[in-house]
Design a protein around this nucleic acid. Structure first.
Lengths: 257, 257
DNA sequence: GAGGTTACTTTACGCCGTAAGGAGTCGCAA
DNA sequence: TTGCGACTCCTTACGGCGTAAAGTAACCTC
């Protein structure tokens, strides 16, 4: 199931995201849980099981039933929104511009890259409807601050912010989901990949002739970090080179009128 | 639920993808269905309902039960793989290079953009484990062919192919999922967005002061196509500008040694 | 202490993917 | 011609999911 961000009551969602909770005294038993505790537990579960975690699993981690969560949170969709925004709190909200915008933007991208690696499920939260939480805003504000210092007009910058954002997310998806998928099946990712491509080469031996340019692209590989498994090296190389080209494009826009 | 590509038997999956089916005569009743028919029906259902379509819905569209599908297809994961690759058959496999690589790459990106718009569910298929189907290969081969003509080395091109691919997918996700989500709830997307942001401004009136750079970025908007709704104009503008910057970066790499 | 509000549980409903087993259909060998 | 085995498709059922409904016990205010 695709989890669309925030399909519940808009007011309730936004209030939870921005913690507009009145802390007045109320009758009834003391709350044993809290929205924060639930969100933290849910993030922990999602880090292990992915976005397809169950409300029952979150409840269990807190020593409650699944239904107990519904006292604090309207439903799973809203919980995912809260998880998304809370996870983003891990990220820096500003970057030094002493060496100019480019090192700062590179740092931003690398921080995001690592963030996605820690929380692969984040990339499964629908991007279409923005969560509109404070930490998500802060993260984009950080990138916007870096890029505004280039002096480029807003019209240009919107596309650039989007491009960097999409690129990092896409590049991270390749590697992080691979790890997640391997973890879910218990099968090592390398093995899975080799099994598939071996069968493919067996069934279609002329593959290289049918797709010569793809074959050409695979030339002169060398691992960046021999400690890392094959796929991660691959992804890291693509990430660095892609980011460099993308930022070269930004530099070109800055240099031009 | 996140749908990971191809977690079933690797051999069976690859054989289905590449249609390595022996067409020998067999006993038993004539098959009333076929893999193709099922994949087509599933795509039609997914276009309407998203990746969370049910096997029962696909069966119903074919006048069968859900279980009938399992005669042809090992499971939903494998079916999604087949849908993914078959949908990609809609895309061109080559682009004229008469005007150089840049117009061709731009065309490729726009075709992908429109493709994602037609089949929003494609973007929900996990990218991590490549489907490895013939049409996916052909689509990437087309982009590779365009970019190899720049003369850049493979090491550089891998990152660029990835960057363009990720960027298009990310940019498309913003708009296509927005449409899909609106369709799923029956709620018009514009309304949903306005409802959320209205509540947000009510709860957090100082938003523009807290995130001044984001506010700055929103300056001087003007709709590209007044026929299109707000969000689509927005996404289209970001897509075009982002792609331009990205390709500027590629051009820089071509000009340099 | 009564009454209302709240936290949390139990139970249940309608979905989902799909395993298991059975009914009917056909090709082929005896 | 008949029977067998392979095959398609069905019905039934299982264990999961998110969550609605209703019940129980804790707690504050009057």
């Amino acid at each position: 199931m695709v989890v669309y961000a925030g399909q519940g009551d808009p007011r309730r969602s936004i209030e939870l995201l921005w913690r507009a909770a009145g802390a007045e005294k109320r009758p009834g038993p003391k709350p044993g849980l809290s929205v924060d505790a639930i969100v933290d537990a849910a993030i922990a579960v999602a880090d292990e099981e992915g976005i397809a975690f169950s409300m029952r699993a979150v409840g269990e981690r807190l020593g409650r039933t699944a239904m107990a969560l519904y006292t604090y949170v309207p439903g799973k969709n809203e919980l995912v929104d809260l998880m998304y925004d809370r996870a983003m709190a891990e990220l820096p909200t500003s970057y030094p511009l002493d060496d100019g915008w480019r090192p700062a933007a590179t740092r931003w991208a690398h921080d995001m890259w690592e963030f996605y690696g820690r929380h692969a499920w984040v990339m499964q939260v629908s991007q279409a409807r923005p969560v509109l939480g404070p930490h998500e805003f802060a993260v984009i504000e950080a990138l916007a601050t870096i890029l505004v210092s280039t002096g480029l007009p807003g019209r240009e910058l919107r596309g650039i912010v989007g491009a960097i954002n999409y690129f990092v997310r896409g590049a991270a998806q390749t590697i992080a989901e691979a790890r997640a998928a391997g973890g879910a099946t218990g099968e090592a990712d390398e093995e899975w990949w080799y099994a598939r491509s071996a069968v493919l080469l067996e069934i279609e031996p002329d593959l290289e002739k049918k797709f010569p340019m793809l074959h050409l692209l695979e030339q002169d590989r060398e691992p960046i970090d021999p400690e890392l498994p094959y796929l991660e090296n691959d992804a890291l190389e693509n990430f660095r080179n892609g980011l460099r080209v993308l930022l070269d494009g930004v530099e070109g826009a800055v240099a031009k009128p």
